[in-house]
Design a protein around this nucleic acid. Sequence first.
RNA 1: GCCCGCUUGGCUCAGUGGUAGAGCACUCGCUUCACACGCGAGGGGUCAAUGGUUCGAAUCCAUUAGCGGGCACCA
Length: 896
Amino acid sequence: MDIPKTYDPKQAESQHYARWEREGCFAPEINRDPNAPVFTIVIPPPNVTGSLHMGHALQHTLMDVMTRHKRMCGFRTLWLPGMDHAGISTQLMVSRELKKEGLTRHDLGREKFIERVWKWKHESGGQILNQMRREGASVDWSRERFTMDEGLSRAVREVFVRLYEEGYIYRGNRIVNWCPQDQTVLSDLEVEKTPEKGKLYYLQYPVKGSERRVTVATTRPETMLGDTAVAVNPKDERYGDLVGATLILPIMNREIPVVADEYVDPEFGTGAVKVTPAHDPNDYEMGLRHDLPQIVVIDLNARMTQDAGAEFFGLDRYKAREKVIEKFEQLGLLEKVIDYEFSISKCERCKTVVEPLIMLQWFCKMDEMRELALGLMRREGKPRFTPQVPYEKVYTDWLENLKDWTISRQLWWGHQIPAWYTKDGQVFVARSEEEARAAAGTDELTQDQDVLDTWFSSALWPFSTLGWPDETEDLKTFYPTSVLVTARDIIFLWVSRMVMTGMKFMKETPFDDTFITGTVLDKHGQRMSKTKMNGIDPLDVFDKYGVDATRLVLASIGSTDTRWNDNQVEAYRNFANKIWNAARFCLMNSEGARVGRGFEKPGEEWALHDRWIVSRLNQTARVVNDAVNAYQFHEAVHTLYHFFWDDFCDWYIELSKQEVSAEAASEERDGARSRLLTVLEQALRLLHPFMPYITEELWQRLPGVDEKLLHPAYRETTHPTIMLAEYPQANAELIDERAESEMQAVINLISRVRNIRTEMNIKPSERVRLIIAAPYEAQRAVFEASRAAVARLARTSEILIRERLEAPRASARAVLAGGAEVAVPLEGLIDFETERARLSRETEKLQKESAKLEAQLANPQFVERAPAEKVSEIRERLGDITERVRRLTETLEAIK
RNA sequence: GCCCGCUUGGCUCAGUGGUAGAGCACUCGCUUCACACGCGAGGGGUCAAUGGUUCGAAUCCAUUAGCGGGCACCA
């Protein structure tokens, strides 16, 4: 048999994916059952510019586990892949390329530039898609989508037009976040606030016709050039007499009023606030309340405008700041400057400080949209978040405070806003230019130059990818999707918006459940990031430990924030090797045997260990199915790991060896071999969603695998593959409590003897005699039937089984549950001192426990108030322990 | 400032009213015919602190501390 001793993941990883893909195993059409239930996931579209990171690998693993599990359960499954066009990042990337050629996008012009972006996309975009193949992701590539596809673009236009017609979308002049670097407006969610050390400047503004001065505090002195008022709290007695007074704005020598506004916090700073309506969101609001002029002093490049005065015109905002301070100093109006820490708004992408500016932009009104999502949560509790705490609250709290969404972007790469203007500025929003012309009654139209926020198209992803606005078969079949798996930082940006648009246009939730993954941190508990250079490349981990091992780690992480640790992957790499070698053993002993279709009922010829492993297998299937359905992936992994390693390898294989490794063919041997293979095959199926490669690799080598093992929905659709085998479900009739407890007694017996051997320093090669005493006939029958197993695994020569213990004084002994005892005669080998110490230690341990139980039973309130079964359980346990202590004490007496 | 979460063996994490768990690391033994990426046997935790509820608390409640997250404010 030419099976290597060590599993080589790369070999298997290079084999199976291409075949699965080629044979259409990932597409829902593989399922031929017209009544099959449907399971759908749409992938969170990664950026076309992106490459695989640990967060993706985590999400993809979970989605693949669910998809493969459901597929094997006979669901018509669709996991739909794709990417978004990442407006800003992509445009920046291509602009950078152009820069190397000494060009700007303006040199090319809009049309040529967009062609260039498409070219870039075809040549070097979407690296992540091939990386997903490596991951084993069972996505349906035939349905791959891109947000800039014609179909999805049509959906965008349709949504825009409908929202515009219903008054949700409007164009208006409002204060927005402007990134002077990227030259585009940003939504509130694309701005990150970072704490920063700065200065707080106290500036004095003279009161007109008085010697008095009012001091205002500011972190941005340069904006004072655009001040049009100073505000104080109406209740603030310090300034009461000044409300309505006129101040002389220094440098500009502009007369500005003192206004009273509740917004001002008398406790903060000086209690007087300079008001710059054109350059601060709060001042903007105040400006509207008091009808203040908006003087724009900073332009789109963050330089000072003409309105800032000739002296400042053209200066960068930070240069202007220095100059303003200089001026105030000269004028003797700079009261003081203090160190001050405050948070500053930066562009999430380029980290440039954003400039709040008043601009004409497109907005989406969110008040009614938000009600659609909140109503869905109130009525149906959807989407159900996992973990529910804290995400359901985070989600609803955010929705409740939602402001209007700035949807236009000053970019070229993206969905150009379907609005056309006539020469005199009339606007026509339409699905196409033709429609706009018809509505306008003229051909002389110019389309709005802006594009839409990338998230505007992502918000439609669950239905636009399925063909909406057409009522396609896919849309009918696969919407709403079953579950969304994503990271917590896009709950607002994406999840909430999909729910709102889904409710608005499909009248139905886009997904029933939302699973929020944990964050993979570095070993110091820090987020992985490019800037910190602390990221771990999943592909490196794949290379080092294999995809399957990495997937087990990721599946175990699930929704928990976890510090990445290679040790964990190594442990699962070892597990993969264990699986490999267990299969290797089975295959080396497989002549004359075939994989069966599973177990339907216990066979006459089954030994205790057969009934036991089948029971364990069914328990495992039950737990694993439940765990995956409940998104408890770590529990599924843990259960499978211990079933395979502890139950199957450590015990079942060992107990089977005797029969299975017989040289000569016989009905018994081949039956045992077939049972062994069948258990292995069932275990591989259970593992497959988590470890697709090794399970397929081994499955293909098993004798007797054919289409009969496939789920009925897939039979005769393709070559047999484990990914279409039926996922084992628990059969209650095969769960055998008695077999499990009998087997446990045998396991305990063997473990106790091994313990004695170790503690008595008996060489592994040395066989010992064993005397077993058990008071009950049934116990003796179990031990009797397990003679060969005990002899083999405890390495004994002769085994005596009796009702009462009669053993030489020079024996090491142990007391088992149920009143059973064992003795290992050790003439000449036993050190009585050691033995006494060993037994005393054990006695002590048991006595401590029995003391606890006795105290519990001595408490009348416990006996009275605790459930009756709990009380009797304690009584039983105490009885058993007391009995064991009694026997141990006798034994100790005997060897004194 | 408001809301939320976490704190369990050396490390990474499960457990969530009724006998404290796993993997790794550690100790001892092993060329046992699948596997040293292994086999066998062990050691190790007053479950952050305090108080409460309960017959019974790692688990429920309250307070405190440390760490982390979200939101708001930041003139």
